[in-house]
Write a protein that binds this DNA or RNA. Structure first.
Lengths: 341, 341
DNA sequence: TTGAAAGCGCTAACAT
DNA sequence: ATGTTAGCGCTTTCAA
């Protein structure tokens, strides 16, 4: 493998020293005369020189790279957060790449190794693991996306899931539903579940409804989970007497459920009401269009970027938590029912 | 900034030389006695050492990192290709990160700079730019995803768009459609258009149908394009006499068109037939579900990875092109018509 | 099997 | 404003 040209050749051709070349190519802004600068630039062009960022990073301890780790790159929810963060972070001079963990701790661990090995200046992530200590020990500024109540000393940005859940539940209540079920996950992202579940339990208690464990479905927040939800629902037998609405933990789940229900001859928005969470693009396209609680993806991504930049500037600053409110998006998956309960 | 522990401290603690430590931590497999190895491992654990991959890469010219560049990370079509490539590439010991160009040449150029500056061992991309020469001059093995007829000397994997287009057209013909229109883009991705358009022209000629330029719509392959298609279609006035089906350049376009048509009171699958291309998840969720030509995303991503690995092994090997056939997925957006033409 | 020495290409600190 | 000198932390000869 032929080695590329280095600043030495550039320096020689321009008739200056390595340092001068370095001053020209680095943004640090060391003082260089206009004359020297132009000769260096000319030499760079002539030789087709490109700086070796490995060497630069090794010396300067700055890579100007930020890693955004998401659990599912194919889910628009995550990819749009990544994109929003990218905008802000690039504007600050960094290059952004995204790592896809696929909800897999092993894969996530690989990315952590990358971070530990000095390749990135910062990290924005929604982690699969619950080991906050390990994340803090990564040795670079980190911002968590999502709600991690237990992550006290680490910058976090996310949606106020409890309030968002409540928003959905209150809307179902207001439209006359009295037997409201819940579909959410206990596996993988325990932290989210507990918040949705807790909000649900509180709500049910507050309204004075007798809880029905049979209409609390624990399924994955995925298409497969949506199909399983429907399977379990229909297996209830007399389900129409027990459930008139279900709050689904996310849109992917809800959308898959809508489709599976249609296949089973159940019409969502009439026979049963469904509310999702996230407001991914497909929520607007499906029929019936999904009523859901929108999470402000751009705001979340942007805020995560902002927090990261602040921490990179001042590693000692106190940690912050930003929780954005969700927004109810009313579409066609919820029926209007009479109810005088 | 306190500097992390280096192999020097590890060597000292283990009572061996730097070289021995290096042999242990690098996979190169230099010979080390079992005794030395275990002492080094113990020292590594005790000190919490992690190797600085910048330094390693600088010296060895290997980063074990591969960049996958996609034009739109929020489009499941691309993210699934990236994911498939990731599986294969990680299995070969590389770490994968993805870069999102957002169809923006400037952003793409930034990623190219990253590549040129020695950060990656290889690159899988769907490029925005048409400058193949520049891509070849990047200095690392590259595999292109998508069809680039002009890219002679570069590994490419994609779908056989001509045949895929034909598949859609033949199906429309077989279901009795005789006034088949085309909606595809002339801007941005000229290379794709020409293939779809050429296949369309050939097909029309072959069937002996008089071409009607008024039903060839040039719109972007985006949601906006779908809405514009419908606008232009309805502006035709007597459109029902001129068009009974439209082949859309991709699913995003087709899905947006379905929605816009519904808003205009036109029922797809009855008043007009639509076929898409790609088979993104939303194609199955929309109502009516979209009949489309599926591109084998996993195969494409996997083959791209395979090609890249082969080229990294042997940079001198002749370049290959893999074109996968599309698969017709019949759903509900095409009407059955009587026709004896 | 191991160690010593020489860099990889760059930036930082200190000259001048 | 510029050059000189040391490294950054690792891998790679080359010897032993």
């Amino acid at each position: 493998m032929k080695t590329k040209t280095s600043i030495i050749e550039v320096a020689r051709l321009a008739g200056v020293s390595k340092s001068t070349v370095s001053r020209v190519i680095s943004d640090a802004g060391g003082s260089v005369s206009a004359d020297a600068e132009s000769r260096v630039q000319a030499a760079i062009r002539e030789l087709g020189y490109t700086r070796n960022s490995l060497a630069a990073g090794l010396r300067s301890q700055k890579t100007w790279m930020v890693l955004v780790m998401v659990p599912d790159i194919a889910n628009p929810f995550w990819s749009e957060i990544a994109r929003a963060a990218q905008d802000r972070l690039e504007a600050a001079g960094n290059s952004i790449v995204v790592g896809n963990t696929d909800w897999d701790e092993k894969r996530e661990a690989r990315y952590f190794d990358l971070v530990r090995s000095c390749r990135f200046d910062g990290l924005v992530l929604n982690s699969v693991t619950d080991d906050i200590k390990m994340i803090q020990d990564l040795g670079v500024p980190v911002v968590l996306v999502g709600e991690r109540a237990e992550a006290q000393d680490i910058d976090t940005v996310g949606t106020d899931t409890s309030t968002a859940t409540r928003l959905a539940l209150e809307y179902l209540w207001a439209t006359g539903h009295r037997r409201i079920g819940l579909a959410t996950s206990e596996h993988g992202s325990e932290r989210f579940l507990s918040l949705r579940r807790r909000a649900y339990d509180d709500f049910i208690a507050e309204k004075g409804v007798a809880p029905d464990p049979g209409i609390i479905f624990s399924v994955k927040l995925s298409e497969e989970g949506g199909r399983e939800l429907v399977r379990e629902l229909l297996a209830l037998g007399n389900w129409q007497d027990r459930v008139d609405a279900i709050f689904c933990g996310n849109d992917i789940l809800a959308i898959a459920a809508i489709n599976a229900l249609r296949d089973a001859g159940v019409e969502v928005g009439r026979d049963i009401s469904l509310v999702g969470m996230d407001d991914i693009p497909a929520a607007a396209h499906i029929f019936p269009a999904l009523t859901t609680v929108r999470k402000p993806r751009s705001l979340i991504g942007g805020a995560a970027a902002e927090l990261l930049l602040a921490r990179m500037r001042d590693p000692g600053r106190p940690s912050e938590k930003h929780l954005f409110p969700g927004e109810l998006i009313i579409r066609g998956s919820v029926a209007e029912r009479q109810n005088n309960t």
